[in-house]
Structure formats: C-alpha cells, structure tokens
Design a protein around this nucleic acid. Structure first.
Lengths: 146, 146
DNA sequence: GATTATTCGTTGCATTTGCAACGATGTCAA
DNA sequence: TTGACATCGTTGCAAATGCAACGAATAATC
C-alpha cells in the first residue's frame, strides 16, 4: 500500500556492493594463507612490499600498502617472531628500521606468490570480458572518488 | 641486476585494489554519518533494511545485508538505545525479534538517505563511462568468484 | 506426548583494531 | 650549542570484532 518513503536499494549501492565484493575476493586467499601458513592479510602485504623493495622501513610500508602505522608495526613484529623477517636499525637515520626477508621468508614468499598468481589468473579468466572497464573504474575511484 | 624473483605487483592485484577502493568509497560516507549522526556502517545497514522491509528480525538482517549475527545484534541494540529502533517479540515465533523504526528513526533515515543518494549521484557521474561494465564485473565477482 | 535437534538472539571471552600518546632520534633556526 | 619542533617505531588503552557457547523457543522424530 504505502510506497517506500524513498527509493533506495542497498544491494545496488556502490559502497556496499564494492565492500562485499572486496571481502569476497580477499576471503578466498586469506583463508588459505591463514590455514596453511598462519599469515594474515596485513602480514601478506608487508611481505609483498619487503620482497619487492628489498629493505624497507615501517613508514614505507605504511605509505605503500595502505596499512595503519601500528598495524604495519605489529604485522612486522609477528613476522619477525615467526622468523620470516629480520629487523636492523638504519645506519643513516637511526629512527628508521630496515626490514629484510630471511631465507625462510623468501621461501614462504615463493609459496604465497604462486598461490596469489594462480588466484589472479582465475580472476582474470572470470573477469576478462570486463577487465579493461573494471580497471578504469577502479582507477577513477582510487584517484577521484569523493 | 637481479630481476625480481617473481613478477608481482600488489597495486594491480585485484583483491588488494578492490579493498582499497571499497574503503575509499565507504570512508566518505562513514565519516559523515559518524561525525554528524553518530551512526556506524553496521548501524546504517540495519537501518536501511528495517526502513525498506518494515519489520525484520536479526536473522533477516544478518542474511540480507552481509552482517555477522552478533554484529547485527549489537548494532540493533545500540540503535534501540539511541531511540531509533524498537524491538518486539514476534507473536508467531517467539524466538524472533520484530525490529521497527521509531519516528526518530524514520526522521534520521530521511537525512541519511538524502546524503546517500547525493553521494550515489556523484559517484554515478564519476563512473558513468564505466558503469555498465563495472556492474557486470561486480556481478561476476559476487556470484562466481572463487 | 516425550525426547532429541535445530534455530533464534544474546553474551563471554580472547584477539584485533585505531588512536593518541610516548621515548628516541633527527632537523632547523636562533 | 642550544632549544623548539618534527618524525620514527612502539605501546597503552578503550572499543570493536569474530567465534563459540548459552538459554529460550520451536521443529522433528519416535
């Protein structure tokens, strides 16, 4: 009888839709990383950046992989305790920390990267028809979204 | 000299990219809802579903708006304490709760919906060139992503 | 109808999170 | 040099989170 006061559908609301989609994508990998390797997503991001950049500070991780400073710090501490990372003080600026992969960390990354690339290939296949437009839309969001 | 052991760029890795984009989209609204109305995203989802469906249970919210059962329960409890929702026991099945908007809740929703629709319109303008493909890609992810 | 299972919403509890400090180090100008 | 200020990584703390377990209510099975 009474029509809805205002037409609004959460299921088509982009912030909600994107959040659910992002959770869906992350969960697949996250569960495997957690169950098989005991690694969280934050730790995974730290590892990727250290593996890529060689010797990085917490600040650098914080800026590059979208992790809160304290979250990056705690993830790095756990990875060090697990033997995957080593910390040294930077000689030039002793406030900075130089994080590097241990041999165990490098070996772990081989496994994690293989799994991630596999996953990415499956996603590419699924999304191939929309890949270009999806990338363009994400670019627009990441640079210009209000 | 030594090339990277494996070519992998987090910035182009879809799970990461989608997560950051989703955070970007949610944060805009979330900050406003929090600062101006003291409402969290979980509470916003509960309100939307109650406003849309009239009288709903916690279970229904849990299933429809992608909220953990306990998260939905606590969000509803806070909304009730703030005077936006009222709870009654369902007569047919006394395990179920019937959540409905109070007048204050309905008034709040008018504000929140106006803000959300404004935001959606701005996003539509930004993403118009890619809208169709973005929707198709999100559909594919939400139904078929591994 | 009695008994066993299942489902509902809530809550206890350990962990995680975000934010604001903090001490330590570095920078800059008086 | 000295003092005020900024930045680094860490940590204290309150709030949020996820999960399992709970009591209450219903469904299913015998």
């Amino acid at each position: 009888m009474t029509p809805p006061a205002s037409s609004f559908d959460l299921a088509t609301f982009l912030p909600y839709r994107m959040t659910v989609a992002a959770e869906r994508l992350s969960t697949g990998l996250a569960r495997r990383y957690r169950d098989d390797y005991g690694i969280t997503i934050a730790e995974w991001r730290v590892l990727v950046h250290v593996a890529d950049a060689g010797s990085v500070s917490i600040r650098e991780i914080h800026r590059r992989v979208h992790l809160e400073k304290s979250k990056a710090s705690r993830a790095a501490a756990r990875l060090q305790a697990a033997g995957y990372l080593s910390k040294q003080v930077n000689g030039d600026d002793r406030r900075l920390i130089a994080l590097t992969l241990t041999p165990a960390g490098a070996a772990l990354m081989q496994d994690l990267l293989r799994i991630a690339l596999d996953y990415q290939h499956r996603l590419d296949a699924l999304l191939a028809p929309h890949a270009a437009a999806l990338d363009a839309a994400l670019d627009a969001i990441l640079t210009d979204a209000p």
